[in-house]
Design a protein around this nucleic acid. Structure first.
Lengths: 209, 209
DNA sequence: AAATTTATTGACCATTTAGTCAGGTTTCGT
DNA sequence: ACGAAACCTGACTAAATGGTCAATAAATTT
C-alpha cells in the first residue's frame, strides 16, 4: 500500500498537518483551508501536491500504516510468550503516546466502516494477524502458555493499548489531569501487561538483565 | 442532562435515524437530508422538531448517555468482586452488541476531543467513576481482591468491551465473518471476563444457581 | 544566460448543504 | 362544529467549501 517516498519536506509538512486535522475533525469535518493554515501554506499549494481531499487523506492513512507495521514483524514461536507479549503491549502503548493523532485517525476510519481501508484490512491486516495468531497457537501447543483464543487476545491488546490514545480526552477528564505524561504512560503499559499476562496464566517477570 | 420526554414517535424516529447517520459519517459528514431520508420524512420536518444540526446531535448524545447510565448504579462494596465485575463486563458487551451505533457515535465524539461532552465528562462521568473506583478500593481493603488500580481497571474494561462495537468492521474483517452473531458475543464476553478476573487474581466462577 | 521544467499563489467558480418560511393540514379542546 | 394550536412540507436562500486556473517565481538543464 505504501507508495514510495514523499519527495519534499513541504509534502511531509502537509501530511503532518493533514493528519492532525483529520484526526481532530474527521474526514468531512476537516477543511482544506485548515490544513493549509496549520501547514503555513496557501491552500492552492496543497492542491498542487495532492490531487484532492481524498487523495491527501489516503496518503495520510498510507503513511500511518507504514509506520505502524514496522515493529511487529519479528515475533516467532521460539520467543518467550511473556516477554514477547509484554514487548508487544509496551510498543503499542508507546506508539499511542508518540502519535495519538495517527491512532485517532485510524480509529475514526474503522468506526465509520473503513470505507478507505477495506482492501487493507483484508489483504494486509488479516494475514498479519493470522501469522501472529499462529505463533501464539504454537506457544500453546508447546505448553508455553495456557489455551487462549489468539484472535481475542490480540483484539484485547489492541483495544486496551489504543484506548489511551483514542479516548485520551475521556481518560484525562476522569483522572483530572491536564496531559498524558511519561509516568502515566509507564504505569498504563505495566498495568495492561500485568493483567493480560496474568490473565493468560503467564508469570510476569521483569526484564532480564 | 436528560431533557424530559420526547413527545412523539416521530421524534424518536428522527433521533434513531440521526444516531445511525452520525455514527456512520461523523458529525460533519452527516447530512440533514440523509437523516431525513433514513427517517422517511421531509427535511424541513426535522427542523421543526430540532432547531438545528447541533441540537439534534446533542439530543442524540443525551439519549445515549441516559440509556447507558441505567445499569451500573447498583454496585456496592458488599457485592462479590468477581460476580460484579463479570456482570459489568457482560452488560457492557451486551450494550455494544445491542446498539453499536451508540457506542460508535460516543467514541467519535471522544476521539475528536469531546467538544460537546466536556461538561458531561467532568460533572457526571468523573464522579460516577470515582464512586465505582471507591467500591473497588473497598474490595481491596477488605481483602476480597488483590491490589489493582481501580481507574486503570475500569478503563481496560471499557476499552476491551467497546472495542467490539467501535472496531466491528476491523474485527469482522480479521475474523473473516459477515456479521457479529450471538455466539461471538458470548465468546467475547467470556474471554474478556476471564482475562480480567484472572488478571486481578479473582477466581472465575460460573453463575451461582 | 536562455530555455524549460517545477513550484507557488491569489482570485475565482460551481456545488453542496444547513437552515428558513409561508402556506397547508391535522389534531384537539370546548 | 369550530377555532386554535400544533404539526408538516415544498420551494427557496445564503453561506461555506473543494477545487481550478492563469499568472508568477524559483530552480534546473542545456
Amino acid at each position: 500500500m505504501a507508495n514510495g517516498y514523499n519527495r519534499t519536506a513541504q509534502k511531509q509538512q502537509i501530511l503532518a498537518a493533514a493528519k492532525e486535522e483529520y484526526a481532530l475533525h474527521g474526514y468531512s469535518g476537516t477543511r482544506m483551508q485548515a490544513i493549509a493554515d496549520r501547514a503555513g501554506l496557501p491552500k492552492a499549494n496543497i492542491h498542487y501536491h495532492f490531487k484532492n481531499k481524498q487523495r491527501l487523506y489516503l496518503a495520510v492513512l498510507d503513511q500511518i500504516i507504514d509506520t505502524w507495521n514496522q515493529p511487529f514483524e519479528n515475533v516467532s514461536a521460539d520467543d518467550d510468550p511473556a516477554e514477547a507479549l509484554d514487548n508487544f503491549i509496551r510498543t503499542k502503548v508507546q506508539q499511542s503516546y508518540d502519535d495519538p493523532a495517527a491512532s485517532k485517525l485510524f480509529a475514526s476510519e474503522i468506526i465509520q466502516g473503513a470505507p478507505h481501508l477495506q482492501g487493507y484490512l483484508r489483504s494486509q491486516m488479516r494475514p498479519w494477524v493470522k501469522a501472529r495468531a499462529g505463533v501464539i497457537q504454537n506457544w500453546i501447543k508447546a505448553g508455553k502458555m495456557q489455551d487462549t483464543d489468539p484472535y481475542q487476545l490480540i483484539f484485547m491488546i489492541w483495544a486496551s493499548t489504543q484506548h489511551y490514545a483514542d479516548f485520551q480526552t475521556q481518560v484525562l477528564a476522569i483522572l483530572n489531569k491536564a496531559e498524558f505524561d511519561a509516568d502515566l504512560l509507564h504505569e498504563t503499559a505495566s498495568f495492561i501487561s500485568n493483567i493480560i499476562l496474568k490473565g493468560c496464566g503467564l508469570s510476569v517477570k521483569e526484564k532480564a538483565p
